[in-house]
C-alpha cells in the first residue's frame, strides 16, 4: 500500500517536472524567436521612420529634390544633388586607390610574405580598420590636409596646368580640405576591408590548381593572374562592395576635411559636401520642419543606396561562406 502511494507521488512529480520543462522550453523558444525577429524589426523601423520623417520634403519638392542643386535654409529651397554628387565622387576616388592597393596587400600576404611575418602584418593592416573614424578626421584636419595643401596640391595644379580636361579637374587654389582630401582619407579607411576579404578569398584557392600552373612553368605572377585572381573574383568584388558601403556612409572622417560647401565644382580640389557630412553638420542646428525633413530625406537616400550596395556585397560573398565583419 505504502509503495503504491510512493509510486503515485513519484509519477505526479514526474508529470509536473515534465510540464515545467515543456513550459520553459516553449517560453525560451518564443523569447529567442522574438529577439531574432527584432533584428528584422530594426531594419523595417529604420526604413519606415526615415520615410515618414522625410515625407514633408519629398511631398514639397517631389522628384526635383534629387536634381536640384540649391540648398538654402533661408528661402527653404532644398535639393540633394550637391551632397549626392560629393558622396559618389569621394567614394569613387577612394575605391580607385583602395581596390588596387587592397588587392596588392592581399597578394603580398597570401603569396609572398614570409610565414613568420604573415600574421603580424595582417593584424597591423586590420588595425587600420579598427581605428575609430573620428581619429581619421582629427588627423586629416590637423596633419594630412595641411600637408596636401603645402606639398601635394600645388604640385598637382602645376603638373596638370597645361593638360586640357585635367587642368579643370585639378584647378587651384589649394585649400587643403575638399573632395580630394576626403577621398584620400576614405581610401585609407577602405583598404583594410578590401585586403582582409581578398586575403581570405585567395586562401581558399585549391593548392592543386596553383601547383598545376607552377608545373607548367608559370611564373609566380602568372599563377596569381591566371589562377588565384579568377578563382576569387566574386569574393573580391564582394569585398570591394563592402568597402564601398563603408565609403558611402562614412561620416566623421569626411565631415572634418570636406569643407562643407553646398556646391558642385568641376575641380576635385575644391571644397564640397557629402550626404553624411551635411547631416552631421546641420541636423542639430536645423530650424523649421522642412529643413529637418530635407536632412532626413538625405539620410533616406543614403540608406537606400547603401542597402543596395551591401545586399550585392553579401550576395557575392555568400558563395565563399567567409566570416566577415
Amino acid at each position: 500500500m505504502a509503495e503504491l502511494t510512493m509510486g503515485a507521488v513519484q509519477f505526479a512529480e514526474r508529470a509536473t517536472t515534465l510540464k515545467r520543462f515543456i513550459a520553459t522550453d516553449s517560453f525560451f523558444r518564443h523569447l529567442t524567436r522574438a529577439a531574432a525577429i527584432s533584428v528584422l524589426a530594426i531594419l523595417f523601423g529604420v526604413f519606415v521612420s526615415l520615410a515618414l520623417g522625410a515625407w514633408p520634403a519629398f511631398r514639397t519638392f517631389g522628384l526635383d529634390f534629387l536634381t536640384a542643386q540649391s540648398w538654402n535654409p533661408v528661402t527653404e529651397k532644398f535639393g540633394a544633388l550637391a551632397p549626392v554628387y560629393g558622396t559618389l565622387v569621394t567614394s569613387l576616388i577612394a575605391m580607385l586607390i583602395a581596390v588596387p592597393v587592397g588587392i596588392g596587400i592581399a597578394i603580398f600576404l597570401t603569396e609572398l610574405c614570409p610565414r613568420l611575418l604573415r600574421q603580424s602584418i595582417g593584424i597591423a593592416i586590420e588595425l587600420l580598420a579598427g581605428i575609430p573614424s573620428i581619429i581619421y578626421g582629427i588627423w586629416g584636419l590637423f596633419v594630412f590636409a595641411p600637408f596636401l595643401q603645402q606639398h601635394v596640391q600645388p604640385a598637382l595644379i602645376d603638373l596638370f596646368g597645361g593638360v586640357p580636361l585635367l587642368n579643370q579637374l585639378f584647378a587651384g587654389p589649394p585649400y587643403g580640405i575638399g573632395i580630394f582630401t576626403a577621398g584620400l582619407i576614405l581610401a585609407i579607411m577602405v583598404i583594410p576591408f578590401v585586403s582582409s576579404i581578398s586575403r581570405d578569398v585567395f586562401e581558399t584557392t585549391p593548392a592543386v590548381l596553383k601547383e598545376s600552373a607552377y608545373a607548367l612553368a608559370a611564373t609566380k605572377w602568372e599563377v596569381i593572374w591566371s589562377v588565384v585572381l579568377p578563382h576569387g573574383r566574386a569574393g573580391v568584388l564582394g569585398g570591394v562592395m563592402l568597402g564601398l558601403g563603408r565609403a558611402l556612409g562614412e561620416t566623421m572622417a569626411v565631415t572634418f576635411v570636406i569643407g562643407n560647401a553646398h556646391r558642385i565644382s568641376v575641380s576635385i580640389l575644391a571644397p564640397g559636401t557629402t550626404i553624411s557630412a551635411t547631416i552631421a553638420n546641420e541636423f542639430t542646428e536645423a530650424v523649421g520642419d522642412l529643413y529637418t525633413a530635407s536632412l532626413i530625406a538625405l539620410g533616406f537616400i543614403l540608406f537606400v543606396i547603401t542597402f543596395i550596395v551591401l545586399a550585392l556585397a553579401r550576395y557575392m560573398l555568400s558563395r565563399f561562406e567567409l566570416r566577415t565583419r
Binding site: V46, S49, L50, G245, R246, T251
Partner: peptide
C-alpha cells in the same frame, strides 16, 4: 534574418542616429 543582420552590421552609423 542572417541577410538583414549582415546589412545592419555595415549600415552607416549616422542612419542609426537619425532612426
Amino acid at each position: 534574418i542572417r541577410f538583414i543582420n549582415d546589412i545592419l552590421l555595415s549600415a552607416p552609423s549616422i542612419i542609426v542616429g537619425l532612426f
